[in-house]
Design a protein around this nucleic acid. Sequence first.
DNA 1: TTGTCGGACCGAAACGTTTCGGTTGCATAG
DNA 2: CTATGCAACCGAAACGTTTCGGTCCGACAA
Lengths: 343, 343
Amino acid sequence: MGSSRVTIVDVAARAGVAISSASSALNGRPGVSEATRQRVQEAARELGYVPSLRGRSLSTQRAFTIGLVLQRSWDVLESDPFFGAFIGGIEQAISHRGYALVLQMGFDQQDTENRYRELAANRRVDGVLLNELRVDDPRVSLVKELGLPAVGISPDLDSFPLPYVRQSATVGVTQLVEHLVSLGHTRIAHVAGPEGYVHSRERDRAWREALVAAGLEPGPRLDGDFTYEGGRSAADRIAELDDKPTAVVCVNDLCAVGLIMRAQELGIKIPGDLSVTGYDGIALGTYVRPALTSVQATPRQVGSAAAALLLDVIDDAQARENEVIQLPAAEVVLRKSTGPVPR
Amino acid sequence: MGSSRVTIVDVAARAGVAISSASSALNGRPGVSEATRQRVQEAARELGYVPSLRGRSLSTQRAFTIGLVLQRSWDVLESDPFFGAFIGGIEQAISHRGYALVLQMGFDQQDTENRYRELAANRRVDGVLLNELRVDDPRVSLVKELGLPAVGISPDLDSFPLPYVRQSATVGVTQLVEHLVSLGHTRIAHVAGPEGYVHSRERDRAWREALVAAGLEPGPRLDGDFTYEGGRSAADRIAELDDKPTAVVCVNDLCAVGLIMRAQELGIKIPGDLSVTGYDGIALGTYVRPALTSVQATPRQVGSAAAALLLDVIDDAQARENEVIQLPAAEVVLRKSTGPVPR
DNA sequence: TTGTCGGACCGAAACGTTTCGGTTGCATAG
DNA sequence: CTATGCAACCGAAACGTTTCGGTCCGACAA
């Protein structure tokens, strides 16, 4: 039946060579004449031979698999569009190299750690991706302790102790602020993300520094999160402010959309009374009215680059020890949720 | 170092028994005295022994892995909340049985088929889940041809030739229609999903039959899809209808939200002029105003049940050949987007 | 002619389990 | 006291690769 029980032994027999020669021939290794190489490959094709991952795995000490543990509750994953594209990018990078993705979900921090431990202990994966990094993320020392190859996704600048891929949010957020400043805004608020996350902090910092650079005082900074509901809540708090901002930079699109919706309910005109920006560039941002001015991140490219780097690290950890990939920064995409300062 | 090079040979040596005895002892098989079992387990614990998945895999002919290929473009996955919870459910069901999930994305139908073939050919997975089933889905005969254990997710009724898990949409959609009828609506439209999908068809059929059962003529049926944009487009088409419906049943929440947004832009009051319902019960439905009346599906439970069934099928394909798991039907959740028929 | 070199090829070990058949030794039945 | 049976235990094969060391043989140099 379609199911292939044919092994390299069969191929070798058919080609009339030793198993070792068949192996060399098929893997393009030297030590076989061109003639026999042809003959072996022919035999393999005729028999429909596909190398057994299990045999290779045991022999080469590789799982041909990389791991990704999502340390988020599944209901957060519901609303965050990052992952689909991110995973698609990973796939694209690894599948043609014979690798596959093992995806796990960590319920909480402890659970997540345990999953990394287990992945390492039974050697199910050859390496892991660390995304959604926290400040001083414990996973970093964990993978070091476990001797598990790993690459980080957009870590805190400079001193990150693992190879990593980075897409700057600073550039985009800075452009956003500059755009608002050029529209005459002087009081520009920020709805920030949860404290512990590296990407919350980067966006917060970029917002603050861009304002300082423009000679403006960083306007009110509101605690928030990455959710729609967080945006709604922020709108309520802004509405109660004495000295209201005329623009608000939200930590992500979902939050911005929530803020817009609630603001409109409160009778605040967007962008007439208040300009709003997001971050991520998710589809939803183009659906709402006014369409959301945002920063277009490219999670697909991030996933692809990170996975490719991880495979390189697995191949030669030493050589890639401090490798860093800087992706083109996410760029601003101007839409309709920002406008001139009201007067 | 944390990295365990310790094998069952070491454990056996330490316990002073043969490898085979150590294996039996650790796996709870008979043939070892209680005393030596203790001794072996003690030794294993002291050495921090973790069985090598690779060795087991080769020996038992199992990968300890199941596969899921998402046959959707990554941008669709962006907006559809089903997957996060679904995958979470799978994880929950398999991780404690020592299994892991291999996730792949199929770019198009052909690509998807190739991925199943490859998964089967190199035996990377022990079985696969078939979700997002199409009418006459080619994957069904494919897995049969490949001899790959598989279970279907909510297939077309009755005659599905593989074990499957099913959560009825019929009950929920019927309740939705009955609810609308009880509010006095007599002209109830449906924005349907893409033709080829089994779940589109089931919802369409349920809507139609519920109306017939209520003695009403099935109102206009509009082609649509599962997207926000599709909902907006449907709103435009409804607005142009001569004989406008007073209620519309959308194929899913995202579509319904799009419809509501666009309808409101057109000056149509929801639910004053038009009642709208969705399907899925995603978080977004509770964010919009009016909050969306919908049907609360439980993708997490679906994933969990399907994965558990697949593991059973892998263990004993014969015994489970025609096994079916019916989950409790998704139930209506009434919110604010439906109201009495306008008069 | 003989010795050396290197390319082509082969056999066997190694990876880490599980499993199967066989051996031991003790208890019990005859 | 011997035969039988059974529990406990062991050795070795098997899973399917890759890799390492070695053999063979022809070509070339001395």
